[in-house]
Nucleic acid binder design. Structure first.
Length: 885
RNA sequence: GGGUGGUUAGCUCAGCUGGUUAGAGCACCAGUCUUACAAACUGGGGGUCACUGGUUCAAAUCCAGUACCACCCACCA
């Protein structure tokens, strides 16, 4: 048996093993494998920098699942990759250029893109390095990028298909426009934040009737120059006399009509709404209904243009100030009220978004959303936790067409081509194809300058990364993917889009299960994000505490609530745990010398002592528990806790302590303890491996492991087949023993644990204790009441009962102890059935039978059980008397 | 205006389908160099499970309502 160094050096161990695993292709999927397939595609991190702790959590969870499934006999493909993150990345690079006083326009499209690619290479490499440090068992041979050749091909193919199907269309609409980024945004890229604003009441004089005016309330007086009408509700009595009136537009002098439309709310403001079709989405629609002109008064940078008359050249906010001042001077400003409203801001740069009329590309969403909803209803995709289904379906239900074009450079160029005068257009895969379709020479063909929303390519991720549009073996085998692990904040951005694209293009949902993980917040509950600057760098953490500790800390706080807050203590707890694993393993290995060669097997039942049986039982329980917790509901934090508690509090605190006496003795005497230790350690390491891959591998290698070269290839543990009576009575027996000893010895203040250990392991001590116990026990039996056993039909005195029951268990011969353990377990089970019985009868007969008491038959049955229990105790008590003094 | 989540120990939170005396980590108090581990060990203190009502033999858990705190969604200017 080899020995472990006294100090665990995570850095050395992690580097060494990751390299080996990768070299040996353990991460590699095999589409030709006879094993069942399990596939996760990584949520591609943005190439905007490096990974934050949220990524570390997300990827720890994916790695947990990947390793768990591998050990369960699956051929696992966990596919790595990055997202080009169009606007976000472009902004990062632009900011860098700005430091040198250069804009993207100075460089020109080609040169700028070259810069972004350089940045992408750097950031992408950093991210992949971080994932490796984390221990992520990603199949690096299949790494993808949302702008690699395959994705480019997939994007074009999807676009062309959908364009030709009429699902993608172009049109002049009022869209969300970020003047800083200089591009259109989709609805969900706009964040609405409440802010203090003002509501201005402006007088619009009625033409031909000096002295009369209509007062309009607006929050955006700078758009007055673009007004083409004032609208009131047709039912509004205040304005019935003004039907067909014309108003003079303040500051501009233009005459505009007063129109009536039921869209206008009578009780807001003055009930009169100014209509600015080029700068408000609702006004745009009303304008269309009335055939009104659209007057654009700003340029794409948010600066007023010639149409704004004397305000031309002013920034929109400066224009607002000047307009208000001018209105006031002209006596047209009736009043100004403070007003709170939700101003839309760019989700990437926080600039106030402008509603702006422009020619954009849109995708029809209704038909796709319906398919996605239907698939969800049918349960083709499961959500974990399930309550996210509602958020997801609500969004799909209220979906509107998606603005997919962006006026930025970094991204997939829209595959639309025009002839010279733009009188003809087509969607095509290439210039040559476009030339053919348009019937013009290639030199005349021009491609649309816009790029696609970054979520367009992200939406294709699950099938495009598997090779689509080519029919690859990977696509055939791994689509639909098994599981998507992601956080809830991109449910509509990404998850819904993937579902819709998957159903539209592949005819199948892209994943069978969506596992939603929490967002990581700092200890003040603040969301951690790159832009906020409160991120914890996972690499720094890995450097100081090791990847396993970080992973364990993260997994054990993942409770599937929305936010989980992370503090320094959590990491310390993780580090302490890996430290404990190391030290315990070190101790065990020191004591395992002389263990037979070959794979470790479960020790033979007949040679086991109580402590051995107990730890093996707890081990079996833990195997079952952890498996269930991972399988059912992905309760990974509970699985981590189960493992933590078993390892630390059962194995280390109790079993190892109890085994020390035997291990100290002659070799033969400790053989069973040694075999049990080895088996327990080996099994536990396998259970821990998906959580803490490195340290488990390092220790596991020190144990005999037969033909299996790595714990990665070992199988997931199965609970032992043999059922042990102690197994059913579980850990509570031992805790009862502790209390019993304390209770009986009372004022003696014994060290309970040592005492129990002594009783279990040293017969002399036990005999001694028996004598002490005898008297107390017999006295106690006299007072013993039926308690703690069940329900309200019986009295339930507090106090010593369970301790006494425990005392009975300890100080009696082993057979008696087991009998009682079995009996107790049986009674506990009876309790469960008792309840079910009540429920069943309850259902049949209705409430009146059970006003306050349980039914007689049940009470009778319960009494009988108790009597049996009592007599068993009496009998054992009698045996006790006969023991030698 | 709609919706979702939360409220459990000093702090951060677990607590699955109701069931013995409600748990963990950290913090706190008193001890401890005991065959690995002081990043440890032993023992201990600390909770009217937000509130009110209901269902039940039994409620932190299920139901209804209230309060407070978050968050998300929405085209009242």
């Amino acid at each position: 048996m080899q020995e472990l160094s006294p100090k665990y050096d995570p850095k050395e161990v992690e580097e060494r093993w990751y390299k080996l695993w990768e070299e040996r292709n353990y991460f590699k999927a095999d589409p030709a494998s006879p094993k069942p397939a399990f596939c996760i595609v990584i949520p591609p991190p943005n190439v905007t920098g490096s990974l934050h702790i949220g990524h570390a959590l997300n990827n720890s969870l994916q790695d947990l699942m990947a390793r768990y499934k591998r050990m369960n006999g699956f051929d696992v493909l966990w596919l790595p990759g990055c997202d080009h993150a169009a606007i976000a990345t472009q902004n990062v690079v632009e900011r860098q250029l700005a430091k040198q006083g250069v804009t993207r326009h100075d460089l020109g499209r080609e040169k700028f893109l070259q810069k972004v690619w350089e940045w992408k290479e750097e950031s992408g490499a950093t991210i992949m390095r971080q994932l490796r440090r984390l221990g992520a068992s990603l199949d690096w041979s299949r790494e993808r990028f949302t702008m690699d050749e395959g994705l480019v091909e997939a994007v074009r193919e999807v676009f062309v298909r959908m364009y030709e199907k009429g699902l993608i269309y172009q049109g002049d609409y009022v869209v969300n426009w970020c003047p800083r980024c200089g591009t259109a945004l989709s609805d969900i890229e706009v964040l609405h934040k409440e802010s203090e604003g003002k509501l201005y009441y402006v007088r619009y004089p009625v033409a031909g009737f000096p002295g009369t005016h209509v007062v309009v309330a607006t929050t955006r007086p700078e758009t007055i120059m673009g007004d083409v009408a004032v609208c009131v509700n047709p039912k509004d009595p205040r304005y019935t006399g003004l039907k067909d009136a014309r108003l003079t537009l303040p500051l501009m002098g233009r005459e505009i009509p007063l129109i009536a439309d039921s869209y206008v709310e009578m009780d807001f403001g003055t009930g009169a709404l100014k209509i600015t079709p080029a700068h408000d989405a609702n006004d745009f629609e009303i304008g269309n209904r009335f055939g009104l002109p659209r007057i654009k008064i700003m340029d794409p940078k948010g600066v007023m243009n010639e149409a704004a008359g004397r305000y031309a050249g002013l920034d929109r906010f400066a224009a607002r100030k000047k307009v208000v001042a001018d209105l006031e001077a002209a006596g047209l400003l009736e009043k100004v009220e403070p007003y709170q409203n939700a101003v839309g801001r760019c989700y990437r740069c926080d600039t106030v978004v402008e509603s702006y009329l422009s020619l954009q590309w849109f995708m029809k969403m209704k038909p796709m959303a319906e398919k996605a909803l239907a698939a969800m209803e049918k349960g083709e995709t499961r959500f974990q936790p399930e309550n996210w289904k509602k958020v997801y379906s609500d969004w799909l239900l209220g979906i509107r067409d998606w603005c997919i074009s962006r006026q930025i450079w970094w991204g997939h160029r829209i595959p639309i081509y025009y002839n010279a005068d733009r009188s003809k257009q087509c969607a095509a895969h290439s210039v040559s194809e476009a030339a053919l379709k348009l019937g013009v020479p290639e030199t005349e063909v021009q491609q649309d300058p816009d790029t696609l929303d970054t979520w367009f390519s992200a939406g294709l991720w699950p099938f495009a990364t598997l090779g689509w549009p080519k029919e690859t073996p990977e696509l055939k085998r791994y689509y639909p993917t098994s599981m998507l692990v992601t956080s809830w904040d991109i449910l509509s951005f990404w998850v819904a889009r993937m579902s819709m694209f998957g159903l539209e293009i592949m005819g199948k949902v892209p994943f069978e299960e969506v596992f939603i993980n929490s967002l990581v917040a700092d200890e003040h509950g603040q969301k951690m994000s790159k832009t906020k600057g409160n991120v914890i760098d996972p690499l720094t953490k890995i450097d100081t505490i090791g990847a396993d500790a970080l992973r364990f800390a993260l997994i054990s706080i993942e409770t599937q609530s929305r936010y989980i807050s992370l503090s320094e203590e959590r990491f310390e707890a993780g580090r302490n745990f890996t430290n404990k694993i190391w030290n315990a393993a070190r101790f065990m290995l020191m004591n395992l010398k002389g263990l037979p060669e070959g794979p470790i097997t479960r020790p033979r039942q007949e040679s086991l002592e109580l402590a051995d049986r107990w730890i093996l039982t707890r081990l079996d329980d833990t195997v079952r528990e952890v498996t269930r917790q991972i399988e059912e509901g992905r309760q990974v934090n509970q699985a981590a806790n189960s493992l933590h508690d078993f390892f630390w509090h059962d194995l280390c605190d109790w079993y190892i302590e109890a085994a020390k006496a035997r291990l100290a003795g002659p070799v033969e005497e400790g053989a069973t303890a040694r075999a049990t230790l080895a088996y327990t350690l080996e099994t536990t390491l396998r259970l821990l491996h998906p959580f803490c891959p490195f340290i488990t591998e390092e220790i596991w290698q020190m144990l005999p492991h037969g033909e299996v070269p790595s714990i990665m290839l070992a199988s997931w543990p199965q609970p032992g087949a043999a059922s042990d009576p102690v197994a059913e009575a579980d850990f509570k027996i031992l805790s009862d023993i502790v209390y019993a000893v304390r209770n009986i010895r009372g004022e003696m203040k014994v060290d309970a644990k040592k005492q129990v250990t002594a009783i279990l392991l040293a017969p002399d001590q036990a005999t001694l204790s028996l004598l002490v116990a005898q008297k107390a026990l017999l006295e106690s039996l006299g007072q013993m009441t039926i308690s703690g056993l069940s329900a309200g039909a019986f009295e339930k005195p507090k106090g010593a009962a369970s301790a006494v029951a425990g005392a009975v268990q300890v100080f009696l011969p082993l057979e008696g102890l087991l009998d009682l353990a079995v009996e107790r377990t049986r009674l506990e089970k009876e309790m469960g059935r008792f309840q079910q019985l009540i429920e069943a009868i309850h259902k049949k007969l209705g409430n009146e039978q059970f006003v306050s008491k349980a039914p007689a038959s049940v009470v009778e049955a319960e009494r009988k059980k108790i009597a049996e229990y009592q007599s068993a105790i009496d009998k054992l008590g009698a045996n006790l008397k006969e023991l030698p003094a």
